[in-house]
Design a protein around this nucleic acid. Structure first.
Lengths: 168, 168
DNA sequence: CCGATATACTTAGTATCCTAAGTTCAAAGG
DNA sequence: CCTTTGAACTTAGGATACTAAGTATATCGG
């Protein structure tokens, strides 16, 4: 994190305007999307946070908490709290095996499984609204560019983690 | 929010994979960016949440809380809590006027003003890392596309707000 | 087979961010 | 004036998400 860097794409002042910052734009995009989505899901008793876990479990349930955390893109303590809420709401059950008694497997209840038919279209509709006036190519481009940013940041974070682990 | 919609760009099943969802991608982008940024700012006693307010105040201070909320992209109650923290940390002061005693104006302390020289480059560097391997055109495209998504979602939210206000 | 290490999850504590419902003050219409 | 409406901020309460540090169980090297 040098003070001056001649190879910078943009000078530091460029980001005085948050509208230029990818971090800012991503935050506003996420919050706006999430708010609108919740307007639709809340009437089915599902918050936007719960939605994120349900979506993954619709793809595949019977996976461990750790696996679920990774797929949803959240840390394990966040998952613990979220799953408590989901269990209390009757959306999931947790099961242990004797094979490895550390692991907890997460299963959807029949009720939660049925919700996919109702909730998946709501998400698709929000996506539709979000990309209104954009061509298919532009949508694909946006997705691809965000994935590249995520990969770049993950690489860097991994690098830093290795460094701090080595010094420990 | 119809169950089936023949004009949908993608069928609902497409979003079973979160990697296709703009909401998911924006969330991961934001969190990754924020995490890396905080690694740099925390050593100066600034959290990523505080950073967001400071960046705006570096542009212009002496504005009201409401104005600041809008520019940062957060709701007012969030701003109240954030400003309490910033005041406690010695980054800002609040001042009232007799002209309109409802308004509170926010000013940076000299210390906080000085931090810009140290912190702005850190943000630029994170941005640099995030866009590694991307052309200037691609970066501009990503910014433009996210702005369009934000505008689309804001339009829709405004529409819904008017509707619910009318029925109230 | 047993101590060191790693894995899976939990707890504790905190920061961030929201909605809903206040309070206080200003402005506008009758 | 003085009531209504609106604007600016606050309070209350909860959801979301994190880091750091714990517990319990499994695995692996000697």
């Amino acid at each position: 994190m040098a003070k001056t860097n001649p190879t910078l794409r943009y000078p530091a002042e460029y980001f005085t305007n948050p509208e230029n910052s990818i971090g800012y734009l991503a935050r506003i995009t996420f919050r706006s999307f999430s708010r609108l989505l919740e307007r639709g899901t809340l009437s089915h008793g599902v918050s936007s946070g719960q939605w994120r876990f349900l979506r993954q479990l619709w793809r595949e349930d019977g996976i461990t908490q750790r696996e679920l955390s990774e797929r949803v893109g959240m840390r394990e303590p966040t998952t613990v709290v979220a799953l408590k809420g989901l269990e209390k709401a009757g959306f999931i059950t947790r099961r242990k095996t004797d094979a490895d008694r550390r692991k907890t497997f997460i299963y959807l209840t029949p009720h939660a499984k049925k919700l996919e038919i109702l909730l998946a279209p709501i998400n698709a509709e929000v996506h539709q609204i979000a990309t209104r006036g954009m061509s298919d190519e532009e949508v694909a481009q946006l997705q691809a560019l965000m994935r590249r940013v995520i990969a770049n940041l993950a690489d860097e974070t991994a690098k830093l983690t290795i460094l701090s682990d080595a010094s420990a």
